[in-house]
Design a protein around this nucleic acid. Structure first.
Length: 581
RNA sequence: CGGGGUGUAGCUCAGUUUGGCAGAGCGCCUGGUUUGGGACCAGGAGGCCGUAGGUUCGAAUCCUAUCACCCCGACCA
């Protein structure tokens, strides 16, 4: 490929609306341009990167026995209503009504359609297992797209759905995907971490996330100090805190006047106490039922753990009217005392149960209670009261006695066991060997194609530009003729032609610009190998070879240049090699 | 959706406080000199100052509304 025949509009200035390195560099290197918030046009170089990633994904999915198909981007709303996910997804689900008045959704994921498809086609255990996948566009109406393609409204996702007859078969399908993902991310050159994840409302029984550690990531990974275990913060367990012994007998509950003091910070300031001495009473709605969640003032509720604690039901923060009706007080003054009879359920975090005494809301506007003792002043155990881990791990927590550490990461893939959540609702059933009809056991497996590129750049760049793994770089080699003589031009042309004929993905920078411009763009584009054809070295029958990661180039004879280049490419590829297994 | 910010040339931004000819750098076009790390000289093109309304002799600048984009927060296969 010739630079003058393709289209790579690089820019010197850092775009004003790009904050993180991958976003800035993808614009600067001419990989893509923004069209609207969270939507991007990919230009030739960027699209080449994505195509290479998709090809790796495709090869490994095929190798694992999954079958590539494609299902509609526009899907009937009715299917989503049947699983209830039109409600669960809420505003994030893009929808439109067509001219016939039919409801449609822009697919953010395809469990419904894939399961619906399987329901019509799969009848017998003899057809199982089967795993369908597709690589195509997804849409989510994100409340806040950001970080370039890390959180965009449109993105390319590989999504796969397995259908199995029993647990053992599902486990095999799951393992096959898990292994395929390891191979895919390794081949893409990503330093990934596998974390145990929460499957939340997906209704699963097992899930792993493939995460690339990096500062710009939106997910938090928790891991033990010995690196033996890692979790998404949504799932990260914590050891229960030790029950605090009261220094002296705790006084009886005392009501204190706290005018207009509704938030944790305000209460701390007003009563001169630490946040850790407070209990937050978070009122939730689960359908038409009210559920209280109690966490310590300095802790954060973990919505995923809460969902698990209520058996996977849809649960959300209650609106103001519900809170006022329940507590007879303004928002900010809810407390657990006397609530057990008034709500469907109270879930108490172990850290709260361990408190010797606490400050809580008084269920009375402008009043709080001091000296509230869990177990004495409100029950910690009853038919509808339970102590259960519902908070995020924080600095200082341990698991299994080991200190927990935290880092941020980008989720590039996730594998779920779904069980029968969708197959049950959408009728994906089969007859087993005994003629008994059963719902298929399902798994689903996603990979964010754009995120692979972005996370590779986040962890692969320097002050000059991107440093891409050779498997996903737009080209493997760039030839830079430095010098305006015919000799230089002809030597570069010859190298270009020879490398092409040897099947190498090569870009010849044939632009009529100064050498400096070409060097800058070659670095910016992150092409792994650069051949410089210069006047002086050429006069000595040599060209220069330099990997993007090296600061110095190496001279090689013109005649050996092609073989040396191919050897360098092979060495770079070998670093990403996975065994044939 | 709440809080904050920004909309002026293709890009990055001055100019807005205190109303008075539309600006700079980069990029682009032409010619020349250059040619190994984003060259130089000369000339040139390019803007309904986000949009709509208002105030005023006069509005990029003041007022009102509206839209877009960015950041922080609440959310998320």
């Amino acid at each position: 490929m010739r630079f003058t025949k393709t289209f790579i509009p690089t820019v010197k200035e850092v775009p004003a609306d790009a904050e993180i390195p991958s976003h800035q560099l993808m614009i600067r290197a001419g990989l893509m341009r923004k069209i609207a918030s969270g939507t991007y046009a990919y230009l030739p170089a960027g699209w080449r990167c994505l195509r290479k990633i998709m090809q790796i994904v495709r090869e490994e999915m095929d190798r694992a026995g999954a079958l590539e198909i494609t299902v509609p981007f526009v899907q009937p709303l009715e299917l989503w209503q049947r699983t209830g996910r039109d409600v669960d997804y809420g505003e994030t689900l893009g929808r439109f009504v067509d001219r016939h008045g039919r409801g449609n959704v822009l697919t953010p994921t395809a469990e419904e359609v894939m399961t619906h498809l399987a329901a019509g086609e799969i009848n017998s255990y003899k057809q199982l297992p089967v795993n369908f996948y597709q690589i195509n566009l997804k849409y989510r109406d994100e409340f806040r797209p950001r970080f370039g393609v890390l959180r965009s409204r449109e993105f390319i996702m590989k999504d796969a759905y397995s259908f199995d007859a029993d647990e053992a078969m599902l486990e095999r399908s799951y393992r096959a995907m898990y292994n395929a993902y390891c191979r895919i991310f390794r081949r893409c050159g990503l330093a990934y971490v596998i974390v145990e994840a929460e499957s939340g409302e997906m209704g699963g029984s097992g899930s792993h996330q493939f995460t690339v550690p990096c500062e710009s990531g939106e997910d938090t990974i928790v891991y033990t100090e010995d690196n033996a275990h890692a979790w998404n913060i949504e799932k990260g367990p914590v050891d229960p805190l030790q029950k605090q012994d009261a220094a002296r007998p705790v006084a009886l509950v005392q009501e204190v006047h706290t005018p207009k003091v509704g938030t944790i910070d305000e209460v701390c300031g007003f009563l001169k106490v630490q946040a850790r001495e407070l209990v937050k009473t978070l009122v939730h709605s689960m359908g038409d039922k009210v559920v209280l969640a109690l966490v310590r003032g300095d802790h954060e509720l973990n919505p995923e753990k809460l969902t698990q604690a209520v058996g996977g039901a849809h649960i959300e923060m209650a609106d103001e009217a519900t809170i006022v009706k329940l507590t007879n007080a303004a928002v900010g003054f809810a407390g657990p005392v006397g609530m057990a009879e008034k709500v469907a359920m109270i879930l108490i975090d172990p850290a709260v149960a361990a408190m010797a005494e606490a400050v809580t809301g008084a269920n009375k506007t402008d009043y709080h209670l001091k000296h509230v003792v869990p177990g004495r002043d409100f029950p910690t155990e009853a038919d509808n009261v339970r102590v259960v881990d519902i908070r995020n791990a924080v600095e200082g927590d341990t698991f299994d006695g080991k200190r927990l550490l935290f880092r941020r990461g980008i989720e590039v893939g996730q594998v779920f066991k779904l069980g029968t959540k969708y197959s049950g609702k959408l009728g994906a059933k089969f007859s087993d060997a005994e003629g008994v009809e059963k719902a298929c056991l399902m798994g689903c497996y996603g990979i964010g194609v754009n995120r692979i590129l972005a996370s590779a750049i986040e962890n692969g760049h320097d002050e000059n530009g991107m440093i891409l793994p050779i498997s996903i770089a737009p080209w493997e080699v760039i030839i830079v003729p430095a010098g305006a003589t015919d000799d230089v031009r002809l030597a570069a042309e010859r190298l270009h032609a020879e490398l092409l004929s040897r099947g190498i993905d090569v870009l010849l920078d044939d632009r009529d610009v100064r050498g400096g411009v070409k060097f800058k763009d070659a670095d910016l584009l992150g092409i792994p190998v650069r051949i410089t054809v210069g006047q002086k070295s050429l006069a000595e029958g040599q060209v220069e070879l330099r990997p993007r990661t090296a600061s110095e180039s190496r001279r090689v004879g013109l005649e050996e240049a092609v073989d040396e280049t191919i050897a360098m490419i092979k060495a770079l590829k070998d670093m990403l090699h996975v065994d044939a297994q």
